[in-house]
Simulated scan of single mutants.
Amino acid sequence: MKKDEAYDRGRAMRFDMFGEPGVAGIEQADDFQEPLQDMVTRLCFGDIWSRPGLDRKTRSMLTIALIIGQSRPDQLKNHIKGAIANGVTKEEIREILVHATIYVGLPATSDSWRHAREALIDAGAY
């Protein structure tokens, strides 16, 4: 993996948001998984998450809403923990869930409520 400024920014942000587990995937990636870890580190966190137009808290809130809409529980749990690190509160996460329930629909969000609660408990924010 070629390291550059975007890579370094992305790795640092992944560590800030998710701690050691957030960078473990980078360290443990084999030659098959390396392209994914590179894209996540460099493009997702090094470029998109690092853009100046929105702060990290706002990006976390948007990401949670989008992931709820996609019904991706593992990603939701992970990003709720990252959102807590970015200053999003339990109450704000609850409001995102309420809002998403109306706009995305009950079947897609009912599991998200449970997964969000588990993630908040795991993060010590419940």
Rank of each mutant, 00 (worst) to 15 (best):
M1N: 09
M1F: 10
K2H: 15
K3A: 13
K3T: 15
D4P: 01
E5C: 03
A6C: 14
A6Q: 13
R11G: 04
D16Y: 11
D16F: 13
M17A: 14
M17I: 12
P21G: 00
V23T: 10
V23F: 03
V23A: 06
A24Y: 13
A24S: 14
A24K: 15
A29D: 02
D30W: 12
Q33H: 12
Q33P: 06
E34R: 15
L36N: 07
L36P: 05
Q37E: 14
Q37D: 08
D38Y: 13
M39L: 15
M39G: 10
M39F: 15
T41Q: 00
R42G: 00
L43S: 14
L43Q: 11
L43G: 09
C44F: 01
F45D: 02
W49Y: 11
W49G: 01
R51T: 03
P52W: 02
L54Y: 07
L54I: 07
L54A: 05
K57G: 10
K57I: 05
R59T: 07
M61H: 01
L62F: 12
T63Y: 06
T63Q: 10
I68W: 00
I68G: 01
Q70K: 06
P73I: 08
Q75T: 03
Q75S: 08
N78S: 12
N78M: 12
H79G: 04
K81N: 04
K81R: 15
G82W: 03
G82E: 00
G82V: 05
A83E: 11
A83D: 01
I84N: 07
I84Y: 03
A85H: 11
A85Y: 01
T89C: 05
I93E: 02
R94Y: 10
R94K: 11
R94N: 09
R94S: 10
E95W: 04
E95V: 02
E95G: 09
I96H: 00
I96T: 06
I96R: 00
L97K: 06
H99L: 11
A100K: 00
T101P: 04
T101H: 09
I102F: 14
I102W: 13
I102V: 14
V104S: 13
G105T: 04
L106H: 15
P107W: 01
P107T: 04
A108F: 08
A108L: 14
S112A: 15
W113Q: 02
H115D: 15
A116R: 09
R117A: 13
A119K: 04
A119N: 02
L120Q: 07
L120V: 07
D122I: 06
D122H: 06
D122A: 15
A123N: 02
G124P: 02
G124E: 03
A125F: 10
Y126K: 06
